[in-house]
């Protein structure tokens, strides 16, 4: 029951991978924000050497090298890549820790996964070896993550019902690619997302302060305020974005304008939580 599910076969069959579209998926998914070297700037951010440190109540995780070389995903097949990204299972058949947001990427469309893989194969190779996670008992037993997945791997989107095409695109961006809920939704004691409190804010796992509530129960920004913030990083008070969100805005600003509007439309449609 806790063993990883068997590997997907023939993922996205018949789709001709488009690395250009893969770049948009890569940007929206924020891969480089965690997998680039911690001190990387500008163009170096596309060298996915890993090493970024994530402190959590369960221990410290280190982002792995996912560059297309021997230390990274160089020898992987598309099926292996898809299994890793959307199910959190390594090519060696081990569960990944959910610091890797596969609980969001599970919603990624097969063609997007295929395009993303094609794009990532065009990126520079890094030789940086991986740093082992520093996790204490019992969380260091990876098999136990099978139970975690049974509890917390979502089988549907949170926002359901009739959506406009724009809201649906926003839902895909927020709930799947950009994995906004990973920080903006509070977690249960076992580290799963509390879907009943979707996007209503949470303690900042990596430091002081709180990640804000971005439902209409607390967020009073207009659509144009939101879109403008995603584009320029400026709040309605003309303060600028800070903390981890700065890297997120850098990515959002690089997306097509319609995607920023879609995210705003989705946020206005999510249930308000005070």
């Amino acid at each position: 029951m806790t063993a990883p599910a068997p590997q997907t076969q023939n993922f996205a069959t018949g789709h001709i991978a488009d690395p250009d579209h893969g770049q948009i998926v890569f940007t929206a998914a924020g891969c480089a924000s965690c997998h680039a070297a911690p001190d990387a700037t500008e163009a170096d951010k596309l060298t996915l050497a890993g090493g970024h440190e994530f402190v959590s109540p369960f221990g410290t995780f280190y982002a792995p090298n996912i560059s297309p070389g021997p230390q990274g995903i160089g020898g992987w097949s598309l099926d292996q890549f898809a299994h890793a990204v959307t199910q959190g299972v390594s090519p060696q058949g081990q569960h990944y820790y959910p610091a890797f947001p596969y609980g969001s990427y599970v919603h990624m469309s097969p063609t997007d996964v295929s395009d993303l893989f094609a794009y990532m194969k065009t990126l520079p190779v890094a030789d940086q070896p991986n740093t082992p996670h520093d996790i204490g008992f019992p969380f260091n037993i990876r098999r136990s993550l099978g139970l975690w997945k049974q509890l917390y791997m979502p089988d549907s989107f949170v926002l359901t019902g009739d959506l406009t095409p724009e809201e649906a695109r926003g839902r895909y961006l927020v709930e799947a690619l950009a994995h906004c809920a990973e920080c903006h939704t509070p977690r249960t004691p076992l580290g799963g997302l509390d879907r009943a409190a979707w996007l209503s804010g949470a303690p900042n796992p990596s430091g002081k302060g709180r990640i804000p509530n971005i439902t209409t129960g607390a967020l009073e920004w207009s659509d144009s305020d939101l879109i403008y913030y995603f584009e320029s990083g400026l709040t309605p008070d003309y303060d600028s974005v800070g903390g981890s969100m700065a890297a997120v805005v850098t990515n959002l600003a690089a997306l097509p304008a319609g995607d920023r509007a879609a995210i705003a439309a989705y946020l206005k449609a999510v249930p308000a939580i005070p």
Partner: peptide
């Protein structure tokens, strides 16, 4: 313009509270 605010705050401004 917004990018210059963000870039500086990212590197040189500490967290709130």
């Amino acid at each position: 313009l917004g990018g210059t605010c963000k870039a500086c705050h990212e590197s040189y401004r500490g967290p709130k509270n």
